[in-house]
Amino acid sequence: MPFEMLPLKDIINKYFEGDSVEVSLEDKVVRKSIVIDPERCVSCGLCVEACPLGVIDSTTPYPEIDVDRCVYCGQCVEACPLHAVEIIHLLGKVVKNYLIVYRVRRNKKLLYNRKRCIMCLVCKKNCPFGAIYVEEEGIKFDMERCTLCGYCGYLCPCGAIDFEVE
């Protein structure tokens, strides 16, 4: 369900003056934000414990999240008994001369493209859950540990890791 639709006429006109060109891009733009609802929060501290990276600071009246270091894994969302933590997940896509912005909830499935992978192992070094390991046939994902946070897909320099969203 599209959240917003923006026409790209100006940019296309800049390069293809008046030509009828239909532009679609494979690349997606993903932006996330994490918000703690101060009304619901009771400062129980469960989210601080649940965070695998320790980026949540237990302050009053409600905890603060270091947004620069957060990987939006969703552990705090699951841990919160009052559903006070929310991750807003926006996805921008260029389809047929329009920028369509979707609001999506969570990643559903991890897609790994071995052909694109250059074995730089940036994903393995940065995975907050240690769910990535190396085998002869490229890298493997331990799906029991993986929380589909999408951080590896964001880091991957060659776009070998992709996610299917709900």
Binding site: L25, V29, R31
Partner: peptide
């Protein structure tokens, strides 16, 4: 031209998505 367009489009899309995100968060807050 297409390569230039692509980089421009991505920049534009990032700006717009960030704007939208900020708007949602602001509304919520």
């Amino acid at each position: 031209k297409y390569v230039q367009l692509k980089s421009d489009l991505l920049e534009f899309a990032q700006g717009k998505v960030e704007e939208a995100l900020k708007r949602i968060v602001d509304e919520k807050m």
